[in-house]
Structures are given as C-alpha cells and as structure tokens.
Design a protein around this nucleic acid. Structure first.
Lengths: 194, 194, 194, 194
DNA sequence: AATGAATGAGGCTTCATTCAT
DNA sequence: CATGAATGAAGCCTCATTCAT
C-alpha cells in the first residue's frame, strides 16, 4: 500500500511522462489514472483539477532553475565564472528533468491567465538574473559589448534546446554538453580564437 | 466572393494564428470557422480533417527551411560563409513566420505516428545539412574540433529560440539578430578574441 | 422533420414535465434528450446549459403572471373588482401551467445568484402590485384595515397552493376554484356574513 | 466528546439547514460532514443513507403537525373553536421550523416511491382531519356550504405559504399572523362583514 | 458551395458509499 | 467510533465530423 505522499508523487510522475509524450490536452485523466493504477475519480483525492496538476508541474520545473541561479549571482565571482556555473547547472537540470522543461515550454499556454502570469513572472525573473550576469561581464570588460537581451536569449536557446535532443541513451554527460556550450559562448567556433 | 484558393489560404492563416495562440487542441474547428467567417461544416469543403490541417501547416513551416539550406550547401563557399548565409536566412524565416515554427515545435506531437514521422524526417534532414556544414568547417580547419552534433543543436537552439522572444514591436531587425548570433557562434563573447 | 423552433419548444416542454416530476437536479440532460428523441449533445444546439434551460422556464412562468396583473391594476376599477380579476386570472394561469409554477417555486434555488436575483425581483414586483391593490382597498374603505403584507401573502398562498392539489382529472374548473377563493377572501367562511 | 445521540441530532440539524438552503440534491454528504465537523465516512455510523436522512427529516416535519391536530379534533369544541386552535398551532409550528416544511414541500420528490408514499399518506391524513373540521362546521351551520376540499386546500395554502415569507427578523409573532389568517378565513376582507 | 442540425464519442469532475486501518 | 482512500457510476458539456437541404 503506497502512502498518500507516494501516491501523490506517483500521480505527478505519471502526469509528467504523459504530458511530455502527448501534451496536456492529449492526455486524459483516465490515462493518468491508468498509469498510476487507480480509478479516475480517485485522482481527485490528491489534486483539485487537471489544470492545477499542470500548474504544479510547471511551477516545480521553473522554480528549480530560479533557486540556484540567484545563489550564483550573489557570490563573489567574475562574470565569466558566474556564467560558467550557470551553464553547468542549467544544463544539468535539463538533463535530469527534460520532461519538466518540455511541459513548461509547450503546455503553459493551456493554463488560465492567472496561472500563466505566475509562470511568466518566474521565467522573467530567471531571464533577468541571467541578463544581469551578462551585463556585469560587459561592464567589467570581460565580455564584448553586444545587445545583452539578445545575448541572454541566445544563451538560453543554446541551453534549453537540450530538452529536445538530449537522449540518456547517448553517451554524453551533462558536463560534456555544458563544456561545449560554454566554449562556444565564450570563445566561439572560430579556430583563430584561442 | 473569395475564390476557393483564397478561402483555403484564409483557413490556413486563421488556423495558424489560432494554433499559435491556443495550441492545436485548444482550438476548435468552430473557432477556425468563425475566424474565417464561414460555418463549421463548410470547412470540410476545403480540408479533410483537423489533423490534416495541422499537418499542412507544419509541413509548410519545415519545408521552407529545407529548400534554402540545401541550395546554400551546394554553393561553392567556405564553411564560414555557408554558416553566415544559413544563420541569416534561418533567422529571417523565423521572424517572418514565428507562428509556423511555434506550431511545428509545440504541436507536432498531436499528429498521428505516420504524419509525425514525415515531419521528423524533414527535421532530421535539415539538421544533417547543417551538421554537414559544421563538419566541413572542422575538416577544413575553419572551426574548432568540437562534437559536431552538439554544435549543430546548439546553433539550432540559438536561432530557433527566437520564435519565443522576438517581437515585431521591438526595434531589432532579423539581420541585427542574425549578426549577433553569428558573432557569438564564430567568435564568442570573450573580449580577448578579436 | 421538426423545425428548429418546434425542437426548441419540444425541449422546453420535455424539461418542464421532467423537472416537475423529478426536480431540476433529479433530471439529467440524458432524460430530456430521450424525451425529445435526440442525442444528448444535440440539446446544446438549442440551449447553452442546463441552468439556462431552467432559467428560461422559470422566467417564462413568472412573466406571464406579471403581464396581466399590471394591466389590471391600471384599469379604472374598484379594489374589489381588481381583486376579483386578479384571482380569476392567477388561478387560471396556474391551472393551465401547474408545472411552470411548481418549478418556479421548487427549483429556483438551483440557479446561480445572478439568475436568482432576476427571478426574485420579478416575484417581488408581482407581490407589490398585489399588495397595492390590497392597500387601495383598505384606503378606500372597501377592505378591513389588516396588515397588508400578511394579507397579500395569505392571498398568494391560497391561490398558489392550487399548483399542489389541482388535478385536471377532477371536475373543478379554474373558475369554480377562483370563485371559492374569492368568496373566502372577501366574505370568509362564517355563515353570519352575507 | 458528544454522545452518539447528540451527534445524530447534530447531523439532522446540519442536514436540515443545508437542505433548506440548497435542496437535497444540491447538498453533498461532504457538506453535511463538514458542518458537523466530522469526516465523510463517519456519517455512516449514524445514518444508513442520504435518502434515509431526508426521509427522517421529512417524516419528523409532518408528524408534528399530525399529532396536535388529531388531539384538537377529538376535543369537545365547536368547529369554529377547533379551526381557531388548528390555525394557531399550525402557524406556530411553521414559524418554529420553517426549514422542515420547506424540505417537506420541495424535496419529497427525491425519495423513492415507497418513502414518498408514506409521506403522502401522512399528508393525506392531516388534510382529512382538517377537512373533517371544515365539514363539521358546514353541517352544524357554522360555516357556509362551500366545496370542503377546496376550502381545506385554500386554508392549507394560506398557512403553509408562511414558510416562504416569514422572517424571524420581522416583528410579527406567529400569533399575529395566525390572527390575521383566522380573521380572513372566518370573516373575509370585506368591511361590510362584522 | 454553404448551411446548420445531428451524431456519438469522449473529457473533466462530483458524488454516495464502502472498507481496511 | 473515526478516518480517509478508493470505488464506480453518473453528470454536464464540448467537439470533430457527417449529411440532408
């Protein structure tokens, strides 16, 4: 007999896998119940609605990123060092929870306006911290003076894209991926740069 | 009175806008009919099913990218020049049709397995061409010897992410964005690289 | 093939009969669809929700009463004559549409607060008009000086109760019932009154 | 810790209040449990089913009326005196337990046929006793010779209607209301009757 | 071509009740 | 006695699609 906490966790897990594979709307409560091995109605002992379930998942996904990044930013490091840590942690989180990011990126639209706003706010905050690191680097002369917003989104794209192609079956570790991303963003592909 | 062709185009356009805003499952045929200004049943004179409609949209989105890239690859240019052209064209297409890419990335899962396979194949082909350019650059000594698959996906991430943040209301042109992306991927952020 | 208007009427009729017999909550949309001979989903071509269906029924029931009473009140008659007409019409309406009043009295609570308010307002207006007639009679010396509010509700009770006991199978006409009610409210049961 | 009897009483009370406000079907067992301050499942230590709960409430409401009226009828009084007592007691009971009558009148339909029959029988008996008093009065020359059934229901309507409009917040006592009803049914509104 | 009514499946959720602890 | 998780049925409603007019 699973404890209620285990059941709740099992529901979240099942929902994450299913939403990832078939998206929010493509997944029925029936599907989730079956995956957990309980009846449809029993789900509602643990959650209030399908939408809330999505919100919990998406919120959890975004909050993990936020926590760590804000710690990094406050440490006494050069911008280059901060960027290094940010890239490694970010990529590690994605590799550990690809599904969470997939759902965050693809299904947030299905939430009600209030919920969406909370998520967008959290995303915005994350982006701002990252942008601050970039701007710090520019001001301190570590980085070139490029449009910091575009640089931030470009970096986010490099890292986040991992959720679409990374496969556990491949032999790459999150560190190896992070190393390449860091190398590119810092030094670029060009051989003439050392 | 619009011609059948115009009607068909209007349906596609309406569907693109709606799918973009509310996703495939969040959009009803009713919504599309209303946006076009016809009755629900009339849609079926122009399309066979909602799924096929999604497929057409997604197919159109991907095929545009493919066409151009294969032309570039066959031209007699250095890898660095090819990359330059690829980035500028790719970003330009996204900026011109953000919605198409959004749907491609977020709603393809809703298609049946056969349709999905076609789309995945097309995406794969695009990625392979891009990867070939990268590998060419590595072999010819233009680029550093990094894992070409990871580099390819990283580049794709940088460019594709544009669909999520680019806003026509901002003052950036697609060329300005492409220039920054190119600068980063070639030279990196580091100030010590010239 | 019934016209849409006939279908709508058939749905209302079926709902009235069923709500009357089993109350709003005891009646399923399935029940109504079956009674009309269509599918559950088809009901929604004609109505927007079960609640709205109830509202339409209840609104129709109350508005009939209101219309007539306001006409009577404005005519140039003594209070006694107005009362006479009010009683006869009111009883007649109940006898013709017992179910409507039953639903109005028993199921209005099931409506949302906004809908309930509309209905309560309409009822209130009806009661006020009736009370005005009573007060007119008191002021002009036709009626005894009793608490007009209590008298109004007492008269309403006498008449409305009909919805619970009147049976078409009995041999009483609405006029016969109205005559007795009028006799009681005007002269009372006591034999010593002429 | 409340005794089982107190718990049972608390359940009945909570159910009465809730059924009154939201009707039988609009009230969930959950609602009742919450109002009592126990858990849903625990209700079933005290009652066998929601339906039985409704039956007990409705039965209790009707039986109070019956008891008293049968006593009155057997006393050695004139019909006019019996009517006087019946009206005062009936109105007093309603004022004391408006909710009970509301549920009896509005929710009895939700009971199974067997239960409904018991309730209808009890109501019928009450009506018969009242009708007997009326007929006694007619035979003894105290009352006018009107259709006794219609008179009985008309009187019931006058009195029962109280459940819909009486408000404890108003300043009227049950005696004042009973006095007006008695005055109307005996003497009528007309000023020419003394 | 267009309409719009009808279909029938399926989705989310609520609920009375049971039962192991 | 109390708990609270589980059941399984049923309820309201939406939707893609069909088809007669």
């Amino acid at each position: 007999m699973p404890t209620p906490e285990e059941r709740y966790a099992a529901i979240i897990d099942a929902a994450v896998q299913l939403f990832r594979k078939k998206n929010y709307h493509g997944t029925s409560m029936q599907d989730i119940a079956e995956a957990v091995g309980i009846y449809r109605g029993s789900l509602y002992h643990y959650i209030n609605s399908k939408e809330e379930l999505l919100f919990r998942i998406v919120e959890r996904a975004i909050s993990k990123f936020r926590e760590v990044l804000s710690k990094i930013q406050m440490e006494n490091l050069t911008a280059t060092e901060k960027l290094h840590q940010a890239i490694y942690t970010h990529v590690q989180y994605i590799v550990k929870d690809q599904a969470g990011l997939a759902i965050l990126l693809e299904d947030t639209k299905q939430l009600s306006e209030e919920y969406q706003e909370k998520i967008r706010d959290a995303q915005k905050q994350y982006e701002i911290i990252l942008q601050n690191i970039i701007e710090e680097g520019i001001q301190k002369g570590e980085f070139k003076d490029l449009n910091s917003k575009v640089v931030t989104y470009t970096l986010l794209g490099m890292m986040n894209w991992t959720y679409r192609w990374y496969s556990v079956k491949g032999k790459l570790s999150s560190e190896e991926i992070a190393a390449i991303i860091e190398d590119i963003i810092i030094n670029g592909l060009s051989k003439s740069n050392n």
